[in-house]
Design a protein around this nucleic acid. Structure first.
Lengths: 150, 150
DNA sequence: ATCCTATATTGGACTCAGTCCAAGTCAAGA
DNA sequence: TCTTGACTTGGACTGAGTCCAATATAGGAT
């Protein structure tokens, strides 16, 4: 993900080994790791990396708009590197799997003027809940992984 | 909120002083308290009520479908007694104020078949973020109260 | 009205995600 | 190669939420 690293460097970011590793971990499609998952994967590549650095770096990436915070279960925050394409999330209430999805309409258009209470509305997040093919097949009981709470 | 209590009684719920008090606290429009806020208000009415009872009771109300869990900031869970009317939420990113809003369209219709990845999609939650009239007037800086994370 | 017991409540210890901080390290410009 | 301000570290800390064994009580049975 040298694209990301190049952008960050242009913005004056100091390129440390820790940040490189975190950027590498966040590379991919439909990636929605928790901070601890990012840390676990980062440790594989750089054993001495600390939890604090992971939290710091993720927070900075979010502030820079390079990563989006996602909360699908009301518990843990997850980090989505797909921040440059508008999308929403589809969550399996069985196993917690998360997919990025693109909608046909801007969700803002579904909120009528009379329901805006004078707010200046800027943004909408939509989370869909259902069961993924594997969980439907397994008829798994709904677990704690992803119940609707947003 | 004796309506609620009557329904719960019909379902075999034991009506304790604690549960009555929690039901009373949850009575009202646009109510979205955290568990600790519910506890603080319940203590006013029944000083010896414990945090554990508040958590237990809220969890049961959610399981019974009488209260909905809401998470608008990726941190604290809130409890919405308006569980019988389909609605979504509008959150002020300045002060964290939350309003219930009714949409013109079912958000499920905005998710095309090709984006469902074989999931059996059951539900959607939509959260709108913006600034309430008071925060717009005060031009308050966005605080930690309600940044988009869902 | 009283008894009985399954169900509910309690406080305190515990977990887990996330934050904070002072001390040490290091990237990268001079 | 030096310097320095930005970055990293581990460990202590916070706050939301869970768990549990001991105690209390709602409400049906008598």
């Amino acid at each position: 993900m040298s694209d990301l690293l190049r952008r960050l460097r242009a913005r004056g970011w100091r390129l440390t080994a820790q940040r490189r590793v975190i950027a590498e971990v966040l590379d991919g499609e439909h990636v929605h790791y928790t901070a601890d998952e990012v840390h676990a994967r980062a440790v594989e590549l750089l054993p001495e990396i600390s939890r604090a650095s992971v939290y710091n770096t993720l927070g900075e990436l979010v502030a820079l708009g390079e990563v989006t915070e996602v909360n699908t279960d009301g518990r843990v925050r997850r980090y989505d590197p797909n921040a440059h394409e508008a999308h929403q999330h589809l969550v399996c209430s069985g196993c917690g799997a998360i997919r990025d999805v693109r909608l046909t309409d801007d969700p803002l258009s579904a909120l009528p003027e009379g329901e805006r209470f004078g707010f200046q509305v800027a943004q909408a997040t939509v989370t869909y809940y259902g069961r993924c093919p594997e969980c439907v097949a397994a008829n798994a009981a709904p677990g704690p992984a992803g119940s609707p709470t947003a």
